[in-house]
Each structure stands twice: as structure tokens, then as C-alpha cells.
């Protein structure tokens, strides 16, 4: 039987790292050149396997896992939801832009529209003060002072009005920080109590303060002091 018929099968066998059986085994036993060729093929595949193992099983640097853990330990804002947050902001900005663009088409230019477009001009001085305070300082402004401004914020204000949870007016970028602060305060009851009930100064009974002990001093008038000085000089 010509060897050409077996060549492909023997090569496949070597590639699959399988043992020859049946006709192939018989041919290999009978044909020395094919046996040598088969051995070469097997050697080639063994070399390939060994080479690929060398390529892939490199020693892992010891710094890899600590570096990852350090990244994970960083504040969550930088990692978590950064992608989603940017999408949310982008979507919110796009919605606001669309809303502003669409506004003139829905309402012809009337005084009411001007009020919506320029709320600060139409506000009374009493209403403007809280808004200005909030803009000037990053601190939280009490909800009562923000009450008149609610009508200007059309989106979501009805939801807020329906429930009785206290509301505060904060700069947009500080909303998350406020939430974190409040959640920290909730976890630390002592701190919350201290913030809500400051120490009263009207109950001094509990305090016991020792009076100051001042050593006996010799008190002289200035004139006597001057006389003493001149006597020493003479």
C-alpha cells in the first residue's frame, strides 16, 4: 500500500496526540520511513506544546494583586458607576437642552414665559435672599425659605410636595455629598444627637470649678514705687 495514503492520517493522529490503531498501526510497523516521519511529527507537536506552555505560564508579578486591591480600595466615586453616572448626566443635560429648545414652540412669548425664563427678575427681594444665600455658600438652606422657588422647578416638585419628608435646597453637585453625610450621621447616633441637641449652658449645677488660687501680693501705689527707686539710686 503506498505511504501517501497514510501521510495525512498519521499527521492528524500526531496532531491529536492519539495512538495509531488498526491499519495505521500495521503500516507503521511495516514501514520505517513512515515511522520516522510520524515520530518527527510527534516531536514537532511536543515541541509546540512545550513552547506554548512556556509562552503562557509566565510567573505572575507579585505586585499585580496588591495593585488591584489598592485600586479597589480607592473611593468608590472614581470607580463605581463612573460610566453610568456620565451617561445619566449626559442624558439629563440633553433632556434639559431639548426642553429649553422646545419651550418657545409650546408657549408663545408671554409674560408668563418670561417669568419662567428669567425667574430672578420677577422674584421679590424676600424670595431672592435665600436663593442668593444658597448660591453664595455651599451650605444647606432650610426648606421653608425655598418654598416659593418650588414653582419654578416644574420637574419632580409635585412628588416632593406629596410627602412630608423635610426637603433642602442644595447646589446640584453637592446632592450626593449631602446624602453621604446624612447617611454617616444616621450611622453615628451620638454625632446626630450632638448636632441636634447642642450642649446647654443654662445648667451650671453639675459643674464644679475650683477658684483660682492667687498668692498674696504686695500691693504698692505708684508713688511709693517711684520713691523706692530714687532712694536706691542715691
Amino acid at each position: 500500500m503506498p505511504c501517501d495514503q497514510f501521510q495525512e492520517a498519521l499527521s492528524d493522529l500526531a496532531c491529536a496526540a492519539a495512538e495509531p490503531r488498526g491499519d495505521l498501526r500495521a503500516h507503521l510497523d511495516a514501514c520505517a520511513p513512515c515511522r520516522i516521519a510520524f515520530e518527527r511529527e510527534r516531536l514537532l507537536f511536543a515541541s509546540i506544546d512545550s513552547g506554548v506552555r512556556q509562552l503562557t505560564n509566565a510567573d505572575v508579578p507579585a505586585s499585580l494583586l496588591p495593585a488591584i486591591r489598592a485600586h479597589l480600595a480607592k473611593p468608590s466615586q472614581t470607580r463605581h458607576g463612573s460610566g453610568t453616572a456620565s451617561w445619566i448626566y449626559a442624558a439629563a443635560a440633553a433632556a434639559a437642552a431639548l426642553f429649553l429648545l422646545a419651550l418657545p414652540f409650546f408657549h408663545p412669548r408671554t409674560p408668563a414665559v418670561e417669568t419662567a425664563a428669567q425667574p430672578e427678575i420677577r422674584q421679590s427681594p424676600e424670595q431672592k435672599i435665600p436663593a442668593l444665600q444658597a448660591a453664595a455658600t455651599p451650605s444647606i438652606v432650610a426648606s421653608r425659605s425655598a418654598e416659593p422657588k418650588r414653582k419654578l422647578h416644574s420637574g419632580g416638585s409635585s412628588q416632593f410636595a406629596q410627602n412630608h419628608e423635610p426637603e433642602v435646597l442644595v447646589p446640584a453637585e453637592e446632592r450626593e455629598a449631602l446624602a453621604k453625610f446624612v447617611s454617616a450621621v444616621v450611622e453615628r447616633q451620638n454625632l446626630a444627637a450632638a448636632l441636634i441637641h447642642p450642649a446647654s449652658s443654662a445648667n451650671p449645677e453639675g459643674l464644679a470649678i475650683d477658684p483660682l488660687n492667687i498668692a498674696q501680693l504686695e500691693v504698692k501705689s505708684l508713688e511709693e514705687k517711684a520713691l523706692d527707686g530714687s532712694a536706691r539710686r542715691d
Binding site: A134, A135, H153, F160, V168, V170, A179, V182
Partner: peptide
């Protein structure tokens, strides 16, 4: 001019706390 938003701190804190727990 700085943009102001209305928020409910207690609710926001609750959801923040839940998020933090989930993240942990």
C-alpha cells in the same frame, strides 16, 4: 449662577446607604 436642586436628605441617605451596602 449655581444650579440648586431640592432633595430629601433622609431618603437620599437611605438609598445611599443601600447602595454602599450593595457595593461592599
Amino acid at each position: 449662577m449655581e444650579e440648586l436642586v431640592l432633595t430629601q436628605p433622609s431618603r437620599a441617605a437611605e438609598s445611599e446607604w443601600a447602595r454602599e451596602t450593595e457595593r461592599a
